[in-house]
């Protein structure tokens, strides 16, 4: 299947960069992956402000709360700094490089991926693309002038790292020490929210 080959590629590239990729069939599985992760030992998770209203990912929050996880909306950098775990969502995942594409104008949303120790990133399987060139296209669209313009976009490829001292690779410098990307096959129960190429392919196959 097309998506599984792409995912395998994405996973191997991300793992080469020190990150981890998981496949989840739906939000319930995604919740399971997050809730059982060692970074959730304190059952505390930082989420971007207004994440609950964010489609289709907001529906994940009740699933996490139901497992006893304390969800905190990110406020100031001081609040988020060195929190054990944070959650964001990406607009693309790129198989060629194992990168996720994060676009957030709000500083409070960005610091989740900047200052927490383990960063979880959700992305739908429909947004898993083969090449960096698709990032170029999306960058063009999102930086177009206007009220929707995205001012701050990052391609994140693994946790923060350095090899400045004797070229010894050390994971976790100023940013997260772990990056965990969860690719969700069907992130919404409402199929109208899920109309990607991938879904069409799948429909055709069935």
């Amino acid at each position: 299947m097309k998506s599984s080959a792409l995912f395998a590629q994405f996973q191997s590239r991300l793992s080469a960069a020190g990150g981890v990729a998981h496949w989840a069939e739906d939000l319930a599985q995604a919740a399971e992956i997050i809730a059982t992760h060692p970074a959730l030992a304190e059952q505390r998770l930082i989420v971007p402000p207004a994440f609950a209203a964010c489609q289709p990912w907001g529906a994940l929050l009740p699933l996490l709360s139901a497992r006893g996880i304390r969800l905190e909306e990110a406020m100031t950098p001081e609040h988020v700094a060195d929190a054990p775990a944070g959650l964001s969502c990406a607009s693309l995942a790129i198989a060629e490089t194992g990168s996720v594409f994060l676009a957030d104008n709000a500083l409070a949303a960005r610091i989740v991926g900047m200052l927490t120790l383990t960063h979880f990133v959700l992305v739908s399987a429909g947004q898993l693309v083969p090449l960096l060139d698709e990032a170029a296209t999306l960058l063009q669209t999102l930086t177009r002038p206007g009220p929707q313009q995205q001012h701050y976009i990052s391609l994140v490829t693994g946790p923060s790292r350095t090899a400045d001292i004797e070229r010894t690779l050390t994971i976790g410098v100023q940013g997260p020490r772990a990056l965990c990307v969860i690719v969700v096959a069907t992130p919404a129960s409402d199929p109208s929210l899920f109309s990607s190429e991938e879904a069409k392919d799948r429909d055709n196959e069935q």
Partner: peptide
Amino acid sequence: PMTSYTTFI
């Protein structure tokens, strides 16, 4: 293969 962060401002 790629730096950890590629940022577009």
